Deep mutational scan, measured.
Amino acid sequence: MIVFVRFNSSHGFPVEVDSDTSIFQLKEVVAKRQGVPADQLRVIFAGKELRNDWTVQNCDLDQQSIVHIVQRPWRKGQEMNATGGDDPRNAAGGCEREPQSLTRVDLSSSVLPGDSVGLAVILHTDSRKDSPPAGSPAGRSIYNSFYVYCKGPCQRVQPGKLRVQCSTCRQATLTLTQGPSCWDDVLIPNRMSGECQSPHCPGTSAEFFFKCGAHPTSDKETSVALHLIATNSRNITCITCTDVRSPVLVFQCNSRHVICLDCFHLYCVTRLNDRQFVHDPQLGYSLPCVAGCPNSLIKELHHFRILGEEQYNRYQQYGAEECVLQMGGVLCPRPGCGAGLLPEPDQRKVTCEGGNGLGCGFAFCRECKEAYHEGECSAVFEASGTTTQAYRVDERAAEQARWEAASKETIKKTTKPCPRCHVPVEKNGGCMHMKCPQPQCRLEWCWNCGCEWNRVCMGDHWFDV
C-alpha cells in the first residue's frame, strides 16, 4: 500500500509500505531520502505521535493516508518512550493509558441525555464484534464512529474520518494533550489543546475536521460531520418502519427517538411537499423529531443533505422563500418566477423588478396576487391545505425507538455506581478489583462488596467470576 509523507509540512511524497511495516522502518526510509538522522524524526498522525514499535496496521493507516513527519531533536526523557523501550505506560498493571487514536474515538455516547454525564468515556458498548469485510486488514473493525456528507465523488452519507490540525499553522502536526470525549470537544473551536510539532510553531489549540472515509482524499478535501447519525450498535428499532437498520439518525429530543435514513428521507420529502418545515429565527429551515417532541429541531442543517441534490435544492429554495415571508415580504405569483420581494408595508401595487435578471417585471396586487387592478379585489380565496398535519407515529413504536432507553438498560445490566462519587462504572470481565475512572475520584473498590478495596476482598473473592 501507499502512504503519503509530508516532511516538515512540505509537499508530500509517496512511500510504499506493508501492513506489518513498523513506524521506525518508515522513519528509516524517510531519513534516507531526506539525509537526516532517523532518531530525530517524529511521525504524527490523527493528533498522535506514533511509536517506533507500532506497525502501519496498528495505527489504522489506510491506503493513501497522509502522515506528517517532522525533524525535531529529542528532548530529555522522550527518546526512550518513542523507541518502544522502557515506557512506564506499558508496564503490566499500570494505570496510565495511551491517548486514544482519533481513528478509534467514539462519540456516540454523547447523544445520551444530559443526566448521563461521564458515560462518553466510561461506558463502552460490546456491539462492535462484526466481522471485518472481505479485503480489510485482519482485526480491523467495521464499526463506524462518525458519518459525514461527502460532496465529492460519493454525493451521499458516508463513514467519516476525524482529523485534527494546529489552529495556528493549519498543519496536521499537532499532538493532542488528551483525546475528545464528546461532540462539544470536536465542534467547539479551541476547546481542546495540544502541542504543535512543526518547527518554530508555538500553536497549542486544536482544530478538528472530518474527511470522507470511503475514498482517498487530499489535504484540502473536508466534509461536514453529521453528528446525529450513528451506527445502530444498540439495535434500536426505527420509529417509523420498526426495522432494525444501521446507520440511524438520533433526534435530540428527551427520548432520543431513532429513525433509519430511508424513513428520514421520506419524512423530509413529505414535509417538504406540504411546505411544513419549521422556520426558526436562529436555526433556519428545519424539522423536529418525527414524533413531534418539543425542543427537538435539527440544529445542523447539513443533515438535510440526505435528501439528495434535487430535493436539497428545493429545500434551500423553500427556506429562502419562507425567510422572505417571515420578513413581511411577498413572492411573485407569476408561474416560473417566484422571486422574493420586500415592498413597503402599505404598498398595494407590487412590481417584480426586472433588474439584474432576477425579476420578471410582472405587476400584481398584494392582496389577491392577481395582475394589478384598481378598486376592490374580486375574490380572495383562503389558501387550502395549509394546516399542519401531524406525522403519524405509532405510540408503541415510539416507545421502542428510544436510544436513551437502550442506554439505561445497558447501564443497569453492566454497571454499578462507584461507592464514593456514584458514577456508573462498567465491568466487562476481569477481577473484582475496580478503579473509578473519574479523575477527581480514582477510588479503588470491590465490585462484589461495593466497598473500598481491602485485604478481605483480596483474599476471599479477588478473582471470582
Rank of each mutant, 00 (worst) to 15 (best):
L50V: 02
L228Y: 11
P159N: 06
V380R: 08
A401G: 07
W445D: 01
G359L: 06
D464C: 15
C169H: 00
A383M: 11
Y315K: 02
R128T: 13
M458T: 15
F146M: 06
S136R: 13
D280S: 10
Q171C: 11
G203E: 03
G12L: 04
H422V: 05
H215V: 01
K27V: 03
E207P: 00
C337D: 03
S181Y: 04
C289L: 02
K76E: 15
P202V: 09
P439Y: 07
A320F: 10
L187H: 04
S296P: 01
P335I: 09
R191A: 09
C337S: 03
G375V: 04
R170P: 00
V56S: 01
R72A: 13
K416D: 06
N273C: 03
D20Q: 10
A31L: 00
A371W: 15
H11W: 05
T103W: 06
V29E: 11
D219M: 08
R104S: 14
C451L: 15
D243W: 08
R128N: 13
R191F: 05
I411K: 14
W403Q: 02
V330I: 13
Y315S: 03
K27T: 03
E207G: 05
D39N: 09
F264K: 01
C289G: 00
C263R: 00
R156E: 10
C201L: 00
V67K: 00
A383N: 10
G340I: 04
C436F: 00
T21P: 00
H257N: 00
T83L: 14
D86G: 12
Q326N: 10
T414S: 12
Q317Y: 06
C441P: 00
C293P: 00
R455K: 15
V3E: 03
R234P: 05
V278D: 08
F362L: 08
S131D: 13
S19W: 06
K211Y: 15
Q155E: 09
I44N: 02
R305Q: 11
H124L: 05
Q158L: 07
S378F: 13
V465H: 15
P113I: 08
C241K: 01
P281H: 08
C201S: 00
S136T: 12
Q165I: 15
H279F: 13
G160R: 01
S136I: 12
G213S: 12
C451E: 15
P294A: 14
I259S: 03
S255G: 06
N254I: 09
V244Q: 06
C268I: 05
G336D: 07
K369M: 10
K408A: 10
A138H: 09
Y318A: 02
E322W: 03
R234K: 14
Q389A: 15
K427E: 06
N295E: 13
G179W: 04
A398S: 12
S10P: 07
L307F: 04
L228E: 02
Q155I: 04
E353N: 09
T168P: 02
V30N: 00
Q438A: 04
Q400K: 15
V244E: 04
V393I: 13
Q326S: 11
P288F: 04
S108L: 07
F277R: 00
P189V: 05
R72T: 14
G354H: 09
M192R: 05
R256Q: 11
V278Q: 11
P281T: 10
